[in-house]
Amino acid sequence: MIKIENLHASIDGQPILKGINLEVKPGEVHAIMGPNGSGKSTLASVLAGREEYEITEGSVTFEGKDLLDLGAEDRAREGIFLAFQYPVEIPGVSNINFLKTAINEIRKYRGEEPIPAKDFLKLVKEKSALVELDNSLASRSVNEGFSGGEKKRNEIFQMAMLEPKLSILDETDSGLDIDALRIVANGVNKLKSADNASIVITHYQRLLDYIVPDFVHVLYNGKIIKSGPKELALELEEKGYDWLKKDQVIEA
């Protein structure tokens, strides 16, 4: 589905990603872990199309297309979804109104007719239930006055509405209590299918108790320094990152 090869990215001349290689196939869940400042969020931002980052080397192919060639909106229309670490509050823009616009622009891009109002409302009802998002929240201004948990639930609600092929969850678990974490993870699990895939970026193993990954990658200093099965996450929880960092130094 997505193939990242030797990806280098920098911001303001400062290199952050220094050669990432990663392939995600349909049906797979990949977890990316790593200490602060290792480049996890940068990877998410670069994949979503944030323009502040400069790609200095490497390529990203998504469903056979050169992803780096596309603007943020076209990546979304192709089926990439980024659940933001810090969802933006947009006063005055209603969640529903904006989602309807988003869905219709995605449909237009794919040469489809706009969604009938009735179908849209049905979808809202169904998908907001999935993340136990109150109906009134769905119609309020985007994230305005939402609690941390509500904002993250709203991200998963949007993800459910847009039905992406590849979801990138950027520290969706940060700042969530256990109940909210469970709701968010449940939502993600229910949306999982053989045709879509997820990249779950997290600090903690905790989230991976709920969203079970097929692969775990450790990102450190802009590179993936270790990959393994889901058990790797447990090992990281127990031993921290230092033993890997040491290996890294020796390697270098």
Partner: peptide, 9 residues
């Protein structure tokens, strides 16, 4: 950017 990341032009 947030809106664009959801598919809006």
């Amino acid at each position: 950017f947030y809106l664009r990341a959801r598919g809006l032009s």
